[in-house]
Amino acid sequence: MNVSRRIFLKASGGVGAALLLAGWPRGVLADEAWNAKAFAGKSLDDVVKALGGAAAQPSADIALTAPDIAENGAVVPVEIESKLPNTRSISILVEKNPNALSADFSIPAGTDPYISTRVKMAETSNLYALVQTDGGFFYAKKEVKVTLGGCGG
């Protein structure tokens, strides 16, 4: 086995290396700010780990507002407000999308832990609001029924 290749795989994380081999656009890798590993995650656990956490706990202090039924999965309004102290980031995840993570917002001091945006949902799925605080990762979830998927061809 090629030792340096092993080290490279370990250092860059399997996902990043796989993307590199698959010819991921160069601009993405050159730009270290964009967390390719987190966006390749398939589940809440994958994403939490890629963001540097161990596991996320459910919390009643995160308000996740989304429709019960979305007629059009291409435009699902999502509103998240965290009441947890020292909220540092808010992420939106869709469990059954090809990649779970949709958006990750960093909340600097002085900005309310509140975000409103719109995401695509491929099918009926759980929506997660993932919040990172000084005390770790917390989430709230809500099922949204989709009558028309947002990612199909």
């Binding site: 987190a38 949709s102 600097p108 695509k120």
Partner: peptide
């Protein structure tokens, strides 16, 4: 505010 987005933002 700073954010990172994936393709599933509308």
């Amino acid at each position: 505010l700073s954010a990172q987005w994936g393709p599933s933002v509308s």
